[in-house]
Amino acid sequence: MSGLKKIRTRISSVKNTEQITQAMKMVAAAKLRKAQERILNLRPYAENILSVMADVALSCNISHPLLMRKDKMQKVLLVVLTSDRGLCGGFNNNICRFAEDFYRSHDEYDLDFFFIGKKAKNYFQFRGVSPVDEMFQLDREISYPLAGKVAHQLMKNFSDGDYDGIYFVYNSFQSAISQKVVKEVFLPVDLSVAPLVRQEGFSKDLIFEVPPEELLEDLIEKHFTVQVYRCMCESVAAEYGARMSAMENATKNAQDIISNLTLTFNKMRQSSITTELIEVSSGAEAMKS
């Protein structure tokens, strides 16, 4: 009997776990939809700002501190985007491992870290790396003004000469079930992609209400802010996607375990009934003779 009872409690506990993972999956799916919408809404703005920038850049030549490429990269800031909470499959591990590999294989750089999300901080704490700056609760507070604040700080560091380059490492959102770890150079801004955007239907005699140099400076800063916001959005969306698929797998596993346990439970119950029947009938048989 004790074996049966054990299995029964086991089944009910697995059922509870299943309910929790199921609920977490639903929550992640709902949040994912919102995060995806955010990316879609940003896209037209990002594309348009790039094409306006291209138009202005084509009509005038300027140099700006954010465009300056140093011959030799010395000081590099690595911005690592992770989540605050776990239970999302390989999401955080992949990115931390990537960042660590980069850190170990680039001895020539004087590398500093900026962690967004608790997981990266915890991962690197064990390895004796402490960040110059950190930020938490991105998934709750994500907004364009917040990205603006981060971008402003980074631009200030860059123009002050604290860093020769600023790299971002984040999970890019491919689809609800797949994420890819990418590393992008955000500063210095690379304007060489801009002229490719606009080739035809462009008139060179633009009228400028403000001096084009000022305008382009402003546009470059805006472009950088948009880039920061975009990779924050992607990271958040990727986190929810990863959590959703991880929780779906967990739910499936729980269901498998439950069906196996139920099978064993039924078998054991059947065998105990059979034993009891045999006892009764053999007892009756003994009485007869």
Partner: peptide
């Protein structure tokens, strides 16, 4: 006319006849 902000798209290629914008000057 297309009006976009980083957080949403207000108008997407709407055909218009006349437009008044608040320029900085």
């Amino acid at each position: 006319l297309t009006v976009v902000t980083p957080e949403k798209m207000i108008l997407d290629s709407v055909v218009i006849q006349e437009l008044l914008v608040p320029g900085i000057k």
